[in-house]
């Protein structure tokens, strides 16, 4: 694992890295579940936190019990768990993101940061396709799409993995906050019309947490 997590050129992403991501993701979702549910109360059905907690605890258990031996395998496993256990729209959406990304990585035991960025881009495209949503609709895409853009941009500029993922996390946070003034055009919140304005989208908020956990997994690996 140590050589896989080294900084600088030639960084690779391995199974351990992705396991760290989802263990960290489960922790942050557990910690923030109440806030996610609060965000989901005025414009949703007040279950996002509970749904995400159930899904990510199941995902963490699956990853710890039977760890797949490829990074793509970890993504596919977590995606499948989320589709099975979340119980809300975020399940199939995050599940599709991770499964598409996992399939894009194929059977490689280690992948380069650029490959992860490209795989995540394909995953995010899958989310847009499944939900029929675009940026600006006040959905998780408003955090995910800028995150993938920032990740790709930073890697293109020669940033290391941890630095590039930090940039992605900042972009996701900003994207989530930018949903506050938006009017929802997808999901239950869209029925509220203008009354959806002034609230942060819960899906964008949880997306920012997940990207933050990914950045954390990269920082941890560099210590």
């Amino acid at each position: 694992m140590s050589e896989a997590s080294s900084t600088g050129a030639g960084q690779v992403i391995d199974t351990a890295f992705l396991r760290r991501w989802f263990i960290a993701a489960a922790s942050v979702i557990e910690r923030e579940a109440d806030r996610l549910t609060e965000l989901d109360s005025p414009i949703g059905d007040a279950d996002h936190g509970a749904n995400m907690r159930r899904g990510f605890i199941a995902a963490r258990t699956a990853v710890e019990k039977e760890p797949p031996d490829t990074p793509g395998g970890v993504l596919v496993l977590v995606g499948r768990q989320l589709i099975s256990t979340v119980g809300g729209a975020s399940g199939p959406l995050y599940g599709t993101l991770l499964r598409k990304a996992g399939k894009a990585l194929g059977d490689a035991r280690q992948v380069a940061p650029e490959q992860l960025a490209q795989a995540l881009r394909e995953g995010v495209d899958g989310v847009a396709q499944l939900g029929g949503a675009a940026q600006g609709d006040k959905t998780m895409l408003d955090a995910l799409a800028p995150a993938v853009e920032a990740l790709t941009f930073a890697l293109d500029k020669g940033a290391g993995l941890a630095e590039a993922l930090s940039a992605a996390a900042i972009a996701a946070d900003e994207g989530a906050l930018a949903t506050v003034p938006m009017q929802a055009r997808k999901g239950r919140a869209s029925y509220l019309g203008e009354r959806s304005i002034g609230h942060q989208d819960p899906g964008a908020a949880s997306s920012a947490l997940l990207v933050g956990a990914l950045a954390g997994a990269a920082r941890e690996g560099t210590v």
Partner: peptide, 8 residues
């Protein structure tokens, strides 16, 4: 989520 889960 009913529609999205079936699609997924």
């Amino acid at each position: 989520s009913a529609v999205l889960t079936v699609k997924a």
